[in-house]
Computed example of a mutant assay.
Amino acid sequence: SLSYFSSMNMMKSLRDINSDTTQKAIASSADTAAAAAAAAQAANIPGLSHIKTKLGGVELPDQAIVKQREKEIQKIKAIEEAQKLLKKPFPNDIRKWSVEDVGRWLDTLSLSQYKKAFSEASVDGDFLMELRPEDMRDILGMGHSLHVQKVIVTREKLRPLNEMEERKKFMVEQEELARQNRDQPSEPIPEVETVFSQIRNGRYNRVEKALDLGYEANDTDSHGNSALIIAAQNLNKRICDLLLNRGANINHQNSQGNTAMHYAMSYDPEGTLGEFLIGRGADDTLENQLGLSPYDGID
């Protein structure tokens, strides 16, 4: 349902792994931090023209001041080099980050004081994802609890989606595409019987196109059959997978109370499709109107 996909969108927004957005956020914070640091350093450098001393009747800059100025210039150069380094793209997958990448990331969080500890501990991206708060506090010396919290919160936003979350993300994206097509269809959305006929004939590409055009995966015929049930009746695992990825209700029951699992177990003695459906979340305890579970048959 749309409410379901809305909730998925909320999940997606909380764990946005869009690489472009991440890179822009990192670059923006890096530029701001570096520019501010450079300005602060520049503001503290005294001008040589105002500090002179006499040697043999000739006014010369005080050597201590010269050395101080050189030191400050070196600091500014280091800041500029760090700024260039921060603009280097981060790998999209945090688990592929190097120790250097982790150090650059700490710079963007204004936590550069911990770079040395993280580097000495060889904390790369994969290791970073496994660090516990107590590790950061007791081993890496992050004494401020809010600093630890900042690392954890920001790290979680970069954590790759697991297989189930990737599937849900894909479903959300496909539902959004279907919604746009329903609002502005490029061609008519196929009728239920047309799609069911395509499924019975194994026309995978046609079924996929119907879904892209906005066909609702959970639409039913006069007998309460859904597209998934029709695919299960025809033992078409590939189309079953397509429909499930587009939001089909795996436990939908038709007017007789049978589910896709009932037909999979009845028509596939080897149980291959039934095993697949169970792996995707099918409830094998549901009974039809005759009180039969998928293991008992359909009539």
Rank of each mutant, 00 (worst) to 15 (best):
N181P: 00
I229V: 10
K71N: 11
R69I: 13
R15W: 02
A227R: 05
N251K: 02
R179D: 11
L131N: 05
D16N: 15
S186K: 13
S6Y: 00
K77W: 04
E166G: 09
G56L: 15
L161G: 10
I94Q: 06
G291V: 10
K157Y: 06
A30E: 01
N9K: 02
A82V: 00
N181H: 11
E176G: 09
K24I: 15
F196E: 10
Q198D: 12
E176S: 14
G281S: 13
Q83A: 15
S49P: 03
T21L: 09
T32W: 06
S293D: 06
G202E: 06
T194A: 14
E275G: 02
I73S: 03
V172S: 12
V172H: 05
R238I: 05
G271H: 02
R167I: 13
K88H: 01
A227F: 09
G141Q: 08
N254E: 12
E134F: 08
K24V: 15
T32M: 12
Q41E: 08
K84Q: 12
E193D: 06
A39N: 03
I73W: 01
P91K: 10
I73T: 04
V195M: 06
K88N: 04
N258H: 02
I73P: 01
Y114C: 13
A210T: 01
K116Y: 04
F127E: 14
K12R: 14
L211P: 05
I76W: 05
L286M: 14
K157S: 14
E166W: 07
M142I: 10
G143A: 15
Y263L: 15
S19V: 02
G281C: 15
R137V: 15
D219R: 10
G47I: 10
V207M: 13
L109G: 02
E59D: 05
R95K: 12
R167V: 15
K71A: 15
D221W: 01
K54E: 07
A248L: 09
A82D: 01
D268L: 04
S1C: 11
N245I: 05
D212H: 11
D107G: 15
A260T: 01
Q41V: 12
D16W: 00
A37P: 00
K169V: 11
S119P: 05
Q180D: 10
L48E: 03
L109P: 04
E100D: 03
A33S: 03
L292I: 03
G214L: 11
A33G: 00
S266C: 09
L228C: 14
P190W: 06
E287N: 07
P91S: 08
S266I: 04
R200C: 03
Y263K: 04
E216V: 00
W97C: 13
Y114D: 03
I199K: 07
Q74L: 13
A231P: 05
P61Y: 03
A35F: 11
S7T: 06
Q253Y: 08
N288A: 14
I26M: 00
N205C: 08
L177F: 04
E163K: 08
D124P: 07
I65H: 02
M164G: 07
F90T: 00
K67M: 00
V153E: 04
